[in-house]
Design a protein around this nucleic acid. Structure first.
Lengths: 249, 249
DNA sequence: CAGTGGTCTAGACCACGTC
DNA sequence: ACGTGGTCTAGACCACTGC
């Protein structure tokens, strides 16, 4: 049997199935493929990426497990209606979450600071070296209510052109998703009482319970960003579905 | 090329890779393979399950993504030291979490009730029919401190012999893991203020923030169990790692 | 160097759901 | 009936790493 040695054409360490997954995921969370959209069939992606069906299938199966798509035999694969906060902790687009609730979405950049990394910054990003960082604080708003407080550090040594991006126009998460080709991530989820600052901005009592999701993202060369998302506890539920084979119901 | 039609020998709807994953996972969380244990090589599992390497690989890759094992080339696959609350929301064994903190673990059954499902029970289990349920409330203790309050419903129509199990000796989660061959699950994570009851048992102030994880588990025939785990917010962080290819760092 | 895992292929059969 | 996805195979090459 003749093996066509197509394979990884470059020396990049990113697996093809990971790239396919990222490409599709990116188009979903960017809104290019809104909920309900039928995404290409496996055999179409097979042609597009010049790979075998298993490779495409691996990518799409991941997306099923993350809750981003659902697949129906004979019919195809469809972008799912996101359920409040779905995608197994890997949502990059708060806008998608908010619209899923049927609410208008808006976004406000509260603070923008560029500086040499402090000790705390280095701890958050898990880096040793000195580095320039961009510190952003922004508020995501659902309808009229504050929905999520975002406190983000971007490592400017890894993503230098972030210094030029206009984060009052595009949310940092969305911008980064398009810039960083792929990355690993670690999430830490916590319940905390709102501190003075968060309570003030989110319009809560100071002791109100909040869900805090801290995500650190990195690529082959180093830490890219670290973000702390604070949600009012009464407004948020994180939903994750699992199934042995991938089907989420 | 001759295909040996081994394939799914029974008519069960459970994929082989899912069964392998479940088998390995079960041995890990049961403590049979404690952290640091080298689990069988791919080629060994290939022999044991009479399947191809890809099938085994799929199962083990899932476990890497869940944070249960790590794999090193040339060396093998090893059970990971769990990080507080790891395994991407799929931990069944609170004992494992506690021991990961270097603390003694103990467990106390607080309440056991058998009854016809009330409206609330049916809502929690997402069933329509009338059914018998077993309601268990138990406390997981790390060292001397209360660690987690577990409030569980078991559908006795699906798991009738649960009525005979001695849940003062074995934690319901552990027992079920061994009884239910495989299941799908849905998790909901929330931050709430401790209510009177929880605060009392967990030794907290009534307004203290808590992390609540609700997991509903079902199989092909119906809902099996629903459990609500309440953690003191200051004691707990849920950790989840992701990587494009499966390696978690 | 040799063994292990990481990834991929080019097929295959089956289940399911729409036609 | 037919097209899609679900799963699986029996190979393959490569990267990494422990010996």
């Amino acid at each position: 049997m003749g093996h066509s040695k197509v394979r990884k054409i470059s020396n990049r360490p990113v697996a093809l199935h990971a790239r396919i997954q990222h490409d599709v995921e990116s188009r979903i969370v960017s809104g290019q493929w809104p909920p309900g959209t039928r995404i290409p069939f496996e055999h179409e992606l097979t042609t597009e990426y010049q790979c075998s069906r298993m490779t495409v299938n691996k990518a799409l199966s991941e997306l099923v497990k993350k809750g981003l798509i659902e697949r129906r035999r004979k019919s195809g694969s469809y972008v799912r209606q996101p359920e409040v906060l779905s995608a197994v902790l890997d949502i990059h687009q708060l806008e998608r979450e908010v619209r899923a609730l049927g609410l208008d979405y808006s976004f406000r950049l509260l603070r923008r600071t560029e500086r040499q990394a402090t000790d705390e910054d280095r701890q958050r990003l898990v880096i040793d070296q000195h580095a320039s960082v961009l510190h952003l604080e922004s508020l995501h708003i659902a309808g009229q209510r504050p929905f999520c407080l975002e406190d983000r550090l971007i490592n400017l040594d890894e993503v230098p052109h972030a210094a030029q991006a206009d984060f009052s126009a595009i949310a940092p998460g969305s911008w980064l998703l398009e810039q960083v080709p792929w990355s690993a991530a670690e999430h830490r989820i916590n319940a905390v009482a709102a501190d003075r600052h968060a309570a003030d901005i989110l319009d809560l009592k100071e002791i109100a319970p909040c869900l805090v999701i801290a995500r650190r993202t990195w690529n082959a060369t180093g830490s890219v960003t670290q973000v702390r998302l604070t949600y009012p506890g009464d407004m948020h539920t994180l939903v994750a579905q699992f199934a042995p084979a991938g089907r989420g119901a």
